[in-house]
């Protein structure tokens, strides 16, 4: 049989196109739910090795201790709210807007009576790939008082994922992680130095793997040339920091718009240090950066060519839970 002159080229081109289409769909579209948050795992500990090899969930739960809440905490008193404040006896939030370096920066100053109110939530209450939801939608579903986007764990195949005391992913990406312990204190670790299981055993309630650390021990931890991957200097940013015991700041900076340029990591770190942060950590930025306060989107996310919220994998929030 005679093969047409361009037959091979056409067939190979089609095969290449089909494979590329599948790859892009696998990366961005095809949802894979590995587990639903809140489901009781069948066993306390599941072999993480096998799970990593099969690209599935590794579930390890923390041993219950005094710091781990067994019941949903109750709201202390009738909340007093304004457009920029919230207070109910257990939780106090003060929202402020700063203008620096042609950039609008939103800062939520948070004081808690217990670390139980600093929480994380997963999109669609599920851990998996391409499971995304807007920050405002997730905030609404968990009755968050204040919420910011998290580390977008779903965009990566590695990096520890521990949420509310459950270990979902223990594959090391070698990056710097933020550890939020059961007592509400923050720590910065390198995934090369400690395993996710060890973190869980040491009392980690949440581990966020984006980075880098911006402030450590009150000192700026990034240089002027540090960037996330190979990004330009000025970008929308999301960060979380701790000032004192149970005293936190949630920070979102607008960027990529005519009104707001965005900040470099060093500029953000300098700002966080100036407002008193002892430890601060960079979360997913760019189009993901979003802050929601009492159900209202506070900032102006720059999602591609349009100004709207991007769907993300997870949020960090203040609240009493769903």
């Amino acid at each position: 049989m005679k093969i047409p002159r361009y037959g091979f080229a056409v067939l190979f081109g089609l095969a290449l196109l089909a494979f590329t289409g599948y790859l892009l769909a696998d990366t961005f579209l095809i949802k894979r739910v590995y587990t639903t948050a809140g489901e009781e795992p069948a066993a306390q500990t599941v072999s993480t090795q096998a799970a990593e090899e099969s690209d599935e969930i590794a579930i390890v739960t923390a041993e219950p201790d005094e710091a781990s809440p067994t019941e949903e905490p109750a709201q202390a008193a009738e909340p007093v709210t304004t457009d920029t404040t919230y207070s109910d006896g257990n939780i106090s939030v003060q929202l402020s807007t700063y203008r620096l370096l042609e950039t609008t920066v939103y800062v939520a100053d948070v004081r808690l009576s217990s670390a139980d109110y600093l929480r994380t939530a997963l999109a669609e209450n599920s851990y998996g790939r391409n499971i995304t939801e807007k920050t405002s939608s997730m905030a609404s579903s968990v009755n968050a008082i204040l919420a910011i986007n998290g580390d977008y764990y779903g965009a990566q195949r590695s990096g520890y994922v521990i949420r509310n005391g459950v270990l979902y992913r223990s594959t090391s990406g070698g990056g710097e992680d933020l550890v939020i312990y059961a007592d509400g204190s923050f720590g910065i670790i390198n995934e090369d130095d400690v395993t996710a299981e060890e973190l869980l055993a040491s009392g980690a309630r949440n581990v966020l793997s984006f980075g880098p650390a911006l402030v450590e021990d009150g000192e700026i931890a990034v240089s002027e040339n540090d960037e996330v991957g190979r990004a330009m200097a000025s970008n929308p940013r999301t960060a979380i920091g701790v000032i004192d015991d149970l005293h936190y700041v949630f920070v979102v900076a607008d960027g990529r718009t005519s009104d707001s340029d965005g900040l470099s990591l060093h500029e953000l770190a300098t700002f966080l240090q100036s407002i008193g942060c002892k430890t601060a950590y960079n979360l997913d930025g760019g189009g993901s950066s979003s802050m929601v306060f009492l159900g209202t989107l506070v900032n102006n996310p720059a999602n591609g060519r349009k100004s709207s919220e991007r769907s993300v994998s997870d949020i960090v929030y203040i609240g009493y839970g769903a």
Binding site: Y22, L23, D26, T27, Y152, A155, Q156, R157, V228, G229, D284, G286
Partner: peptide
């Protein structure tokens, strides 16, 4: 985009 896929 900030993501990876081993299929590449």
């Amino acid at each position: 985009y900030g993501t990876t896929n081993p299929l590449t």
